[in-house]
Simulated scan of single mutants.
Amino acid sequence: MLRNTLFTGLVLTASLTAAHAQEVTLRLAHFAAESHPGHAASVQFAENVAARTGGEVKIELYPANQLGSPPEQLEQTILGAIDMNLPTHGGLDKYDRAFGTAMTPFAFSSYQHAHTVLDGEFTDWVSPKLEEQGLVMLSHWEYGFRNITNSVRPINTPEDVEGLKLRTPPELQIVAAMEGLGASTTQIAFPELPNALNQGVVQGQENPIGVIYHYNLNDFQEHLALTRHVYNAMIHVVNKDKWEQLSPNQQRILREESAKAGAMMRAAVQAQEA
């Protein structure tokens, strides 16, 4: 009887060990260009997770909207077709309005101000709301303060925006800010933006400096105004069901490496802007 009990125990231990050692592959999709700090942060995250888990957890990267537009990627992550995503506050605002508060025009005076607020009580406030939508929030990364470019004239005063036809994402805070200045706004999917600027469908757009640079939007726009009217961050989220399949140690490593990747991206974005 004792021999049978010991044998059963050994079998169970071996089974648990094998299950724990089984490799898990997570697909991480995002919208940043491969030259953008957002992708560099994703690469660091993937490499460090693989190293620290001994290869148990592997991260496959799909940058630059390879798996669909940003809204499509986020929806697929909620449904579980994609495991991880890096939406902005504006993307998550469609699922819970609390995220839209971070995009209130001129809410933050500096990067330090934004980071202090978002990493603290804001995260405590929105994380449970996000889990109700089927997502687990790992950390805030970065995207940057948004600025206006156009092909018509320099913008030195608020009045200079009046009459411009600007592309914006379909986010209330940004649309309201631009229309409040007298611009007319058009919502165009980001992958179509360079062509729309080139063909004159719109006269300008607004995005963080890193996006303008890495997607060569300055090829079509002569004027850049550092308006810093709305702050944006990429937010590292993972499908809740997939998250719950990971061991507590794997979850801890993913959280720690996500925070490290976010810190690296913040430093890189600010350095490039300078």
Rank of each mutant, 00 (worst) to 15 (best):
G9N: 00
E132H: 04
N48C: 07
V136Y: 02
I174S: 03
P70C: 10
S139N: 15
R52A: 05
H229W: 09
L138E: 02
A263S: 12
E256K: 08
G54C: 13
S69L: 13
E131M: 02
E23A: 08
Q203F: 06
A189K: 00
N150E: 03
R146S: 14
A268I: 12
M234I: 08
L197Y: 01
Q76E: 14
G91P: 04
L254Y: 04
Q44R: 15
E132T: 03
S184M: 15
L164C: 03
A225E: 00
L130A: 02
L254G: 00
L16G: 04
P128I: 09
A114Y: 08
E162Y: 03
I174K: 00
N232V: 03
G120Y: 10
E162N: 09
L193N: 03
A268T: 11
A271M: 09
Q205E: 15
W243D: 08
A50Q: 10
D83M: 02
V201I: 15
L254C: 07
K58H: 12
M234D: 15
F7R: 15
E179L: 05
V11N: 01
H39K: 09
Q221S: 13
V161I: 12
E56D: 10
L254D: 02
R97K: 14
R167M: 09
N4E: 07
P158Y: 08
V43M: 02
G90H: 01
N147E: 01
G100R: 01
W125R: 15
H36I: 09
L164G: 07
L226I: 15
T227M: 08
A32H: 13
T149G: 02
E171K: 11
A263H: 06
G80H: 06
L193F: 05
A14E: 03
H229S: 13
T17S: 13
H140V: 03
H89Q: 01
A271Q: 12
A29N: 01
F190I: 10
E60I: 07
G182L: 04
T149Q: 06
E34Y: 11
N216A: 07
E257L: 03
L67F: 00
T186E: 13
A263Y: 07
A41P: 02
E206N: 10
L26S: 02
G38W: 07
V24L: 06
A33E: 02
T88G: 13
Q199V: 14
F45C: 05
D241T: 15
N239M: 10
W243P: 00
E75L: 09
L67H: 04
A177C: 10
R228N: 15
D241E: 15
S151H: 05
V201D: 12
I253W: 03
A263W: 01
L246F: 14
E192S: 13
L135I: 09
V175G: 05
R252Y: 12
V126I: 10
S35M: 05
V43I: 11
I148E: 04
K58N: 11
A21E: 04
